[in-house]
Write a protein that binds this DNA or RNA. Structure first.
Lengths: 213, 213, 213, 213
DNA sequence: AATGAATGAGTCTTCATTCAT
DNA sequence: TATGAATGAAGACTCATTCAT
């Protein structure tokens, strides 16, 4: 509920959207997340959005267009800017310790996730069947983020705070740990004391990535 | 090619299956993995399997039945037995060091994955839309594996080889690391030197989970 | 190009038409001729005419209305007047010989056709599906032309220049010959030396309709 | 009624057609002739044929396929063979007089037309919108018939029975006369004494095409 | 057991037409 | 007068499923 409102808020801000379009996007997002793209009919979406079926196709040439209209801008306008801009906030602060950087990073990504749970879910569910999505993501998001992360890691390596493995290896070790945290929380739905679990995770990463003596 | 043959071999061994059934299962697995369950038509499956459409429904009451006939036995007959039995091989060996246990575990799971890539892919893709799958998995596989793992972890904790966090927390920290390794390799398709990357990962886990001083 | 301009010119002269209406009529004529009435959408017409879809319906209550607005006035205002008035020019000249009358007639009809190719095409294509068109044509055009032709033919019969068959039979024999000439030229697109082919045709008609000895 | 039965008879003879297919073809032919291809819905056809809409698409991949399945075989299997084989009967008899040949020709074509009125109507109505039809016709029917006719005409020219114009010109003069006869009778629906009207037409052709002195 | 023709509900999409602006 | 968003009925076509052979 809280999440949806946040998602809807973001739609609200976009003045280029008519009210009906907003309804369509909200309804489609809801249903795609719940039943999957292929198993959701435009008829259902129309009903849920309270518009005529034809109205959907006035705004989105095809059903797939509708999917991309949900996922692409989220990637470009939200994921993109947020990741890059917000990330910069984190990255540029030049936290004294790697540990602090990781903590800020986790918090930042968690906020993004909570605002975009459903769209992220749709993206993850549909990406195997729509190669364009994968390519778009890698091209527009992936590469930039990776490059930025590499800089950061090398920064902390030069400060002697983390082990001198290749930066990509460091990412491969650390990223799943953080993503596993989110997956456990949001996908498996495990309830825990966030604060404590994050502390343990950071401690684990710090030790695991500590420089060799 | 190698993988498919391995999958087909497993089907071959099952004497309760007619030749046509085997063809259907192979075709369906292929298509479900490629296009997703909802986007695959029984007509396509029949054509690819070289049988009449009616034949599918003689063996599987509904299309969903066919999905479950692919995924459930894989879980029960393959995932289940293999995980538990094979895992026992690993777990019971009572490896001197936690590190050796982890290494054996990784190898074991990698073999399983390579034999069942497509079915695992189908499972992961469809699980969000078919709650029974999730429940079945948790009930029949998840719990048992978790319980077994908890024993093991506590065993190594009592030997003073790993940190004395709650066992579930240890799993939450270690599992994503290993799964991240597989995801990077099999989903993202990154090429690397397996041997070396595994060594680094194990080293990371060992350090990250080392007992506190 | 030349033809269209001629057609557009005729629309231009009609002061009762707004610019938008003209555009609509031109676009509709083009598309109806090319794809047929039923297979042309009002949306396409609007786009081609550069107007909003609603604008079409402000001027023409229904799509069929638009068809009739193209075909009927062409019949009444163009076919009608032109046929009758222009025809009179031919008929009244009281050509010395039947042969000269036929030649003038062919030339006159050819000019008309070239100015109205598309509308004639639409008329011929749609007349089977819209009985009103057929009736309108017979009522307003057909009868008058036939009656006039009968007078002419009887005139030349009385001068002993053509065979004394019933006038309608003479029309039935001569008309298809002339129409066949146009069809071969404009429908089949056969290229030939007009002058010579017309001479042969007239010679054929003259001989074929010559009085019996 | 008589015509339809004759058309249905011909369908009956084709053993490769199921009963349902026959019904579909009969219903589609009826409706296409009446309302035109574009204005006829597959739903209507299904209802009229007494089958489910899906059944149409089991036999004919698209609606256009259905059109071609009506028109093409009529052209190839009926028009083709009949024209060529039957025509040969006429052409090879080596009628003493050109006049007799024309008379036989008219009779032969009239029989064909009466058996295939509706399909011919559909063909003529749709040919402007489906260029393949035109090409198919020219390729498979047109050229062969024209070539054969040229032989015949040159035969009678060498016997001194008809004027020594280019054979194609003779065809261009004679064909519309005969087709005009059919059009007047079957399209305009004029009632007359066939026998007498045919005699007049033949006399007209004979005189019109008589050799120059 | 296997077939494949038949089904009719359902799919995405287009259409002619309306109406508030 | 002109617009173009909105409509919902209808369009072509697909689907999972059934059943007589």
């Amino acid at each position: 509920m809280k999440d949806e409102n946040m998602f809807e808020e973001l739609l609200q801000e976009d003045d280029s959207l008519t009210e009906k379009q907003r309804q369509i996007l909200i309804a489609a997002t809801e249903m795609f997340a719940e039943k999957g793209f292929a198993a959701t009919s435009t008829n259902e979406i129309a009903k849920k959005a309270g518009v005529a079926e034809g109205t959907i196709f006035r705004h989105y040439k095809t059903k797939k267009d509708l999917l991309l209209s949900i996922v692409t801008p989220m990637m470009l306008k939200m994921l993109g800017p947020i990741i890059l801009k917000d990330l910069n906030k984190v990255l540029n602060k030049d936290f004294e310790h790697f540990e602090d950087f990781v903590r800020a990073m986790i918090k930042n990504r968690q906020e993004f996730l909570e605002k975009n749970l459903k769209v992220v879910q749709i993206f993850l569910q549909e990406v195997p069947f729509h190669p364009e999505l994968k390519e778009q993501f890698i091209e527009h998001i992936g590469k930039k983020v990776i490059n930025r992360l590499i800089q950061i890691i090398e920064h902390y390596q030069s400060k002697g705070q983390i082990v001198k493995l290749p930066a990509t290896t460091v990412i491969r070790l650390a990223a799943p740990t953080i993503m596993g945290f989110f997956a456990t929380k949001y996908v498996l739905g495990v309830k825990w004391d966030d604060e404590e679990e994050i502390n343990r995770m950071i401690h684990f990463l710090k030790k695991g990535l500590a420089p060799e003596e």
